[in-house]
Design a protein around this nucleic acid. Structure first.
Lengths: 329, 329
DNA sequence: ATAATTGAGTGTAACGTTTCATACACGGAT
DNA sequence: ATCCGTGTATGAAACGTTACACTCAATTAT
């Protein structure tokens, strides 16, 4: 690794090249400049190892070419992938990415916003839950997964459609007694539509559907209790279970296994998220997969949109079913 | 979500509070100021929703309170966790984190360095492979996992010790014919010491040890071929396999399963990394776990160390064995 | 041939901070 | 009553850029 020189300024380059300061600026901003001058400036810059100072530039232009992503954590592989894809989408457009982690805590989310606002980011992409989040209205904001009303653009998976898809797939695979398990934040969000879609599809098909809806702080045990209650003589009352996350589905599969219920023989399980282990390999369970890359790409597109007059308020991206052992499909 | 006001400046606050510009500055830098003045400034700032402009501040102080993390990707859960832990460690110290992804490509790594250098970060933490990486010597750099020589501080897991631990554990669990599988970058790194440690422990115990060392671009198939070659009458020549990553271990387990070799009955497998699914649950395989959080914490500590006179050049952090189904322990 | 127009380089004033030298007022000491 | 610290507010300069108004020369139109 080479570690060279300290930080020369435009003034240094100008002196070295024997031109005016403004000329150097022009060269680095693609403003036409005489051939000879341009050559001299570039030579001097190369020699001195000059790099523009984004901070100073931002001070004048009010644009930092830096955006922020606020996420609960990077432990959930869906979030991790999202971070990667947003980062790449931004980099492709010449933007840097500031990452801030909130642990899904409303106060921490506000803290994150403050932190990145101080860095004068050109925009914020947030997967946040705090409904009272305060954001300076001069900084563009795009929400992922959570709808805050028509004034705040939101990009999300087609959760309702995904729920429907899960129900239909299970029915198609021969299930007749369906169950929906939900765990998550206690503030209502877009993700809740997964359940709505699931139930709507059941109703439309004219079959019943049990549900158990819990909050994160309730933990996984109540699900186990519920399952045990509906276990008679080793037979489960349900033969198709839709879980609102892969993580929950993973737990449910283990619980069933522990109770001697064969998956997918006796009961089929579908999760939601579709993040693969190590990014390219097997899933944790059969799943309704979110289009992570497309979500990232779209969010960045909207965030960086020049014309902020009439932005879309909610963009739903199509999900897809992927079978992986916990269903017969 | 509330979206309020635009960006007032110190000048605005000064006018509103009826004090001088410098006084406002003092208040926000904890420099003693008269009780009444302080109250007025704080009131005005609150009312206007003032936030310091980090960019302008940085221009004067040469400190941005922002650091960068350069990673290959966020798909590998070890990297994802590392990103999270570094981000939190930095945030705890009042620093923001810029994330840049390199895809483990040497040119992209250089590109990342350029990008974050333009943002005048106060330091860079890099998990990089490019041995010729050029970094401005005025910006502190800490390497994770890769040793670039005594001039560049590096924090890594105790890879050698981990390899030893794997060998000893396997022997302890009754293995007598050991095998080491390695996949990775073709530039030699700290991680290679895993194999060294493994072999050293074998040698010390006086038993042999076969090895197959491949590069990323070779893919996983050669491992399958190797295993098949050493499969006679459904019996594998080896009863203990150490893989240099969990990912490889995961693949190997599936290959063995496909060949009818029972894991851990016929052969025990240990991987390396120890990242849990969803951060807190089961592993992919028995493993030698890296102390991710401690690595992040240590790297940040060194990066932000005031006295940059005599920094440690290599810090090895202790790993630990975690059994999870692919060994008998 | 002269005036008007273009084109390209120069110099300077911001941008929002911090910092430093200066000014000022207040007490305590001579 | 004067002098001298001490503590605290003020104002201006500087940080590294960009943008704008100028200048000056060369080219085109009248």
């Amino acid at each position: 690794m080479k570690r060279k020189g300290s930080s020369p300024t435009m003034k240094d380059v100008a002196r070295e090249a024997g031109v005016a300061l403004g000329t150097v600026s022009k060269v680095f901003n693609g403003i036409p400049v005489g051939e000879e001058y341009k050559r001299r400036v570039e030579e001097a810059a190369r020699q001195l190892g000059y790099q523009v100072n984004n901070y100073a530039r931002a001070l004048k232009t009010n644009r930092t070419r830096t955006a922020a992503l606020i996420l609960p954590n990077t432990v959930n592989p869906f979030f991790a992938l999202l971070a990667g894809d947003v980062c790449k989408a931004l980099a492709r457009r010449g933007y840097r990415m500031l990452l801030a982690l909130s642990d899904a805590d409303p106060d921490a989310e506000q803290q994150c916003v403050r932190m990145v606002e101080q860095n004068k980011v050109d925009g914020i992409i947030g997967l946040t839950y705090n409904p009272a989040l305060e954001i300076n209205e001069s900084v563009p904001f795009v929400s992922i997964d959570r709808y805050f009303g028509p004034a705040v653009p939101c990009v999300a998976s087609d959760n309702f459609g995904g729920g429907q898809m899960a129900a239909r797939k299970l029915m198609e695979l021969g299930c007749e007694r369906l169950l929906f398990f939900r765990i998550g934040s206690d503030v209502p969000g877009e993700a809740d539509k997964r359940g709505d879609g699931f139930q709507a599809a059941c109703q439309q098909a004219g079959i019943g559907c049990s549900t158990l809806l819990l909050r994160d702080e309730d933990g996984y045990e109540p699900f186990r209790a519920f399952l045990r209650e509906h276990l008679r003589d080793g037979k489960l009352d349900f033969d198709g279970i839709f879980c609102n996350t892969d993580r929950l589905a993973y737990h449910v599969c283990r619980m069933l296994q522990g109770m001697g219920v064969n998956v997918p023989g006796d009961a089929q399980v579908i999760g939601f998220d579709g993040v693969r282990r190590f990014g390219s390999e097997a899933l944790y369970c059969s799943t309704i997969a979110q289009p992570v890359t497309q979500i990232a790409e779209t969010a960045v597109d909207i965030l960086l949109q020049e014309d902020r007059g009439h932005l879309p308020s909610l963009i739903c991206l199509p999900v897809s079913y992927i079978g992986d052992g916990t269903t017969k499909g």
